[in-house]
């Protein structure tokens, strides 16, 4: 049997992996790329055979709704990641200082990550509800406000509420990774810096922070991919409303693709958004590589 020949063995052994990648990644990728070049509508299956070249992409260029969602996603990403980084850093620094209970706290910090984003969305939808939400109730009971603050209805507040939920859910990713960085940090340079004349702030600014930045970039890389495809929290909390004011890329894409059944157009949007994700990831990755160089592979 030729199949038993030794030179075929590697391919035979690799075939499960190759087949999986082929059907799970490659085929859907090629298929969706193709559909983005057709006027494919879910309600008219035949339209998948009609090739229209780049017309879907051309249409995107004039689509203000899309570009608003695009810009809003970048804004959302920037604010959420920075807040999560700063809060995570603060938490990591505090936990690094305590002498006992570090493990327990680390576990507790992971709780928000264990919930499904949809549940987190529902929970915050309830908290921020203008009539029955506990936040407005609390504010009113404390006499801080007499009206009902429209947390999820007014456009800036709605964006704030979503970011709040996102930050609540994911700050611990930063905290845990940065804490790992702090644990790995050698103590000697810190002492050297103290002797060299640094105030505690200067020690942090010049020694600690540069050391843990690679860990921050790892967290940023992971989180930028996550946040760029944010869908569930937004859809549950505001559904992209009011009047599309919290519409992010993926809520828009889902609306175009499924609600309006324009799958071809939605796929074109999806490809453009993927480029956004790739850009962010690439950016943080280059930062990571640059930061790692001087660590000599320590991080």
């Amino acid at each position: 049997m030729r199949w038993r020949a030794e030179k075929h063995t590697p391919y035979l052994l690799l075939s499960p992996a190759i087949l999986t990648i082929l059907f799970v990644v490659a085929v859907p990728l090629v298929f969706s790329l193709y559909t983005s070049l057709t006027p494919y509508r879910l309600t008219k299956p035949d339209s998948i055979n009609q090739f229209i070249g780049l017309r879907n992409y051309e249409r995107l260029l004039d689509d203000t709704k899309f570009w608003w969602a695009f810009g809003r996603t970048i804004l959302f990403l920037t604010i959420a990641l920075n807040l999560e980084f700063l809060l995570g850093l603060g938490i990591a620094l505090l936990i690094n200082r305590i002498t006992w209970g570090q493990r327990t706290l680390r576990t507790i910090m992971m709780f928000p990550m264990m919930f499904s984003p949809i549940l987190v969305g529902f929970q915050f939808k309830f908290i921020f509800n203008d009539n029955i939400g506990i936040l407005n109730n609390a504010l009113q009971s404390l006499g801080l406000t007499d009206g009902a603050i429209p947390w999820l209805v007014e456009r800036d507040l709605a964006m704030f509420s979503i970011i709040f939920a996102e930050v609540w859910m994911s700050t611990s990713v930063f905290a845990i990774l940065l804490l790992a960085g702090l644990f790995a940090m050698p103590k000697d340079p810190l002492e050297a810096a103290k002797v060299d004349g640094c105030t505690p702030w200067q020690v942090f600014r010049h020694i600690t922070l540069p050391f843990i930045m690679p860990f921050a970039y790892i967290a940023m890389t992971i989180r930028s991919l996550d946040v760029a495809r944010a869908y569930d929290i937004v859809d549950v909390m505001t559904g992209g409303g009011p009047a599309g004011r919290t519409e992010l890329l993926w809520t828009l894409i889902a609306r175009v693709g499924y609600d309006n059944a324009k799958m071809g157009q939605a796929n074109a949007m999806a490809y453009v958004s993927t480029i956004l994700s790739i850009l962010f990831t690439w950016y943080f990755f280059t930062k990571l590589v640059a930061a790692r160089r001087y660590m000599g592979g320590a991080a």
């Binding site: 050698p186 000697d188 340079p189 002492e191 050297a192 810096a193 103290k194 002797v195 060299d196 004349g197 640094c198 105030t199 010049h206 020694i207 050391f211 001087y294 660590m295 000599g296 320590a298």
Partner: peptide, 16 residues
Amino acid sequence: RKRNISMVFQNYALYP
């Protein structure tokens, strides 16, 4: 920082 001394450590403690 206020003692005006400098120190050389066993593990060098250079800023990486």
